[in-house]
Nucleic acid binder design. Structure first.
Lengths: 122, 122
DNA sequence: TGAGCCAACTAGGTTAACTATGTTGGCTAC
DNA sequence: GTAGCCAACATAGTTAACCTAGTTGGCTCA
């Protein structure tokens, strides 16, 4: 399953699993196969599989529970790894502000343009 | 150097190096100390250091050259792992555009509602 | 039936060893 | 001076082994 494409085996596995997660084959909350099973499926060592899963964990796509397994995270509740979360939060705040202001403007326009005919054809 | 904070050693090292890179201590183009040196500095095994560096490599913060070393990447030229960087930049631009346009509309409204006293005291 | 024990299974971290590949500097020969 | 060789150094990937910690299910006993 791990091909000689020059791309490291652990990255290929991570790519494959990520594609499954992104593509919906592995839905949020779904447990991934165990490390042992993945090693068998991908014909790789446990260590390589662990590395691959570690990559996805750092990306926030999966979360592991000792003794239980590794589960696909819910994208709506994933803070997003790294500082991106902070940037996204910032953008959300700005968008929220714009939304409020725009609603206000729309309201003003709705009440102020009604009596003025000729201004409604924008 | 790797503390018993419950956070994995390799993650601590990655955090530390990331902070140095983000903080400017390690400028773009700068070579990181070698794996052997980092292992000594952080009192960890080669493998742990490699994992830490691997994390940073996946984040696009560093790039390695065999036989030479690992170098800090230039943030302006780093695509940022995945599409998140590009998407955030794009969203910023859109938000900025909306901000300007909304401010303009708000200004127009302010001037067109001036003759109507009682409506400006929002 | 419920509680306790334990084996099997699981994730995650750490370590050492090995391999492949590339870089660099010193040394030698021409 | 230049080219070639090689040891030392370096990155990156792979593997196996070990350890800690947690989960689960089956079995035994009260």
């Amino acid at each position: 399953m791990v091909k000689n494409t020059g791309r490291a085996g652990y990255l290929q596995i991570a790519d494959d699993l990520r594609a499954q997660i992104r593509g919906g084959s592995l839905a949020p909350g779904t447990p991934l196969p165990s490390t042992a099973q993945l090693a068998e499926q991908y014909d790789a060592s446990l260590s390589v599989v662990k590395m691959a899963v570690g990559i996805l964990r750092n990306e926030g796509l999966v979360i592991g529970q000792q003794g239980k397994g590794v589960f696909v995270t819910d994208p709506d509740q994933t803070p997003a790894a790294g500082d991106t979360g902070g940037e996204v939060a910032e953008l959300r705040a700005v968008v929220q502000d714009l939304s409020v202001r725009l609603a206000r403007v729309e309201e003003q326009l709705a009440t102020s343009t009604t009596p003025r005919s000729g201004r409604s054809s924008r």
